[in-house]
Nucleic acid binder design. Structure first.
Lengths: 210, 210, 210, 210
DNA sequence: AATGAATGAGACTTCATTCAT
DNA sequence: AATGAATGAAGTCTCATTCAT
């Protein structure tokens, strides 16, 4: 049922700018080709605009990337935040965060992918901004790992870098596949860290291969 | 037999070919800016040549990348190979491989970095070639992990992807620092996988943080 | 009749029209950068408007220039007119005119500068208009020089072109400086010309500079 | 008689680049439209090149202007120098210099015109360079005027600025015309100044015009 | 092996201007 | 009177590449 009087018409007609589509298109192109190789022509064309029109919304290509990157961080943060709210056990929370992170990276729109695939160094003018955005997000994992009940002397920082590196690298090899979902991959990653791999007893090791 | 008095002209004219410098320069630029953003101008300029001269050595920019990439894989493979030859224990061998991998990535010239920082997808015409080069190298890790004495049912492929992902991601955050050497980082990574992180006993966990 | 209690809305809305500021800004930009290089963006921005809003006041950039130019001629004419009204001796009147001309050019707002710095040829569509505006003003000097008691056969037109050229060129080298005021400069220019031409008696002329 | 064997063929084919034509075309366009309004497209098109080809010869548009401006100064300096070498009397030398200056400005190619029509301020990045080039040329007039036998206390600097201003402004009004040649104009300008300043005897000066 | 002038395409960006609101 | 999104053309400049020398 439509609202009795379509009041926000005027406001909406201003609001329905193509800016969101523009961001989407930019995210897609940046993720697919990288920042440099994605041309403004290609980006705007996919939303039916002309190159010059981009500059109504962004001062230049760099700022467009900054906006996409920020949105990417926002989305992945939100997804991880939502996932965390459903768990209390520290290890479960870590696994849920990994799963949400991987889902954002592997399943969804291109925003999250931009965050991991665009190296800040490759855009000197933005490097500081992008690094700070990414650090803001990764602070979340600092907390998650701080909450883990780990053996004394565990190198928590290294653990975080190990885990995030593994997660962020997945787009380099992951191919969608019914069996190996992002969620299951996250479970496996965390499981490998949780469980002891080292087996002092020799025969156990040999039996593993047999 | 060459004339005794002859200056080593012929040999020298081979030796002082600027092709190696060209490759070095290309590696440096590709690693620093990415394939697209590194211009042929920049590359040749840093060895004192002119753009057209590049084409005496390579048919085009793609082939230049292919050569750098191949050399990168060759170097990192050789380094890892040398490191492996000094160990027999499976875990030691894995750690040595990781250390050599990280050293190549973080310490040395830019060749290895090109291998991890240039996404094959970003150069469609070369994608297959590059992927196959990288796979050839990573096969080494398949073997190393196959040799590990692991508990039954361990997801060895996932373990490999976890570890290589973590290693390959390091250039995104690593900053040279006397204390945290690549070698030590490799040790910590492997240690985190070897040892059990999960602690069934509740108090142990809480005491870790208290 | 407007309601007595009405705030002076109507009058104010006229008064606070930003048209005068717009003209000022345009004069400043045209004078500083030239007609072509001064962008509408820059002009409107300095009065807090948006580019589209300019077209509420002027049909296009050319008409904006025409308005500024006309105002420039009007101001300099008025200034010279005021100065003339204070003198009766022909040479004094010429010097006063030169002083007013130079003051408008060197001291004041940018309007007068637009008149001398924007070459009519650089705006073909307006060339005729601008030339005619400038000629209107320069006619004043035709009269001033016609009134001078000069030796027979003096090339009065050439004298005018010499003098106006020298005056109009001053912005190319003049730098504000306490000692060399526009007024003093006008005096010096006229003196250099007057000495020979002014002829109450022969020795006066030669002694004028000694 | 042609050389028996056209040896410098090879050398010439390198030397016959279109750089001179490029400079000529740039001078023409800059003089006709001003620096900003003259587009690179127009300039190169008039010598049958493509826009990108310009950058084989000049790093950017500014450097092209710098080259044209420098050549303009060189040409006008050379012309004035040649003219000076034919006279010894100070006033004759000044008049000859003015004639050569005006001829370069009004008759010939566009180079000289660029020097007077492109305001250094309009190209901030080049302002210092252009001003210094122009000052180098105008130093010539400093000397010429220093050599004039003038009444004591004559403001020689002002005299120079008056004269050069008048000369440089001529392109704003001069229209080629059989009777009023640049040479004759120079004579009239100098005459207007000379009469009073020139002083073999006091009555001669007053009688000169009668 | 190397040069340097030239190409042709395409890059990002700015411009004056329009128009529904 | 003013906005702001959009246009379409044009701007300068860079790119990988070619080729006669």
């Amino acid at each position: 049922m439509p609202p009795p009087s379509a009041l926000p018409r005027a406001r909406q007609s201003r609001a329905d700018s193509r800016l969101p589509q523009l961001l989407d298109a930019a995210a897609a192109q940046f993720a697919a080709k990288g920042y440099q190789a994605a041309s403004i022509r290609d980006i705007v064309q996919s939303v039916g605009m002309l190159p010059g029109s981009l500059y109504c919304h962004f001062a230049n290509k760099d700022e467009l990337l900054a906006a996409v990157y920020a949105e990417g961080v926002r989305r992945i943060s939100a997804a991880v935040g939502r996932a965390l709210s459903r768990h209390t056990d520290p290890w479960d929370r870590l696994e849920a965060a990994c799963a949400a992170h991987l889902e954002a990276l592997l399943d969804r729109s291109a925003y999250a992918l931009v965050v991991t695939s665009v190296t800040p160094d490759s855009v000197p003018a933005l490097a500081a901004t992008l690094v700070s955005l990414r650090d803001g997000y990764e602070a979340l994992f600092v907390d998650l790992i701080a909450d883990l009940p780990l053996p004394a002397r565990t190198a928590r920082r290294t653990l975080r870098l190990l885990l995030l590196g593994a997660l962020n690298w997945t787009p380099n090899w992951y191919r969608p596949d019914g069996r190996r979902t992002p969620r299951r991959l996250a479970r496996e990653f965390v499981q490998l860290l949780k469980a002891p791999l080292y087996q002092p007893s020799a025969h156990a090791s040999s039996s593993a291969h047999s």
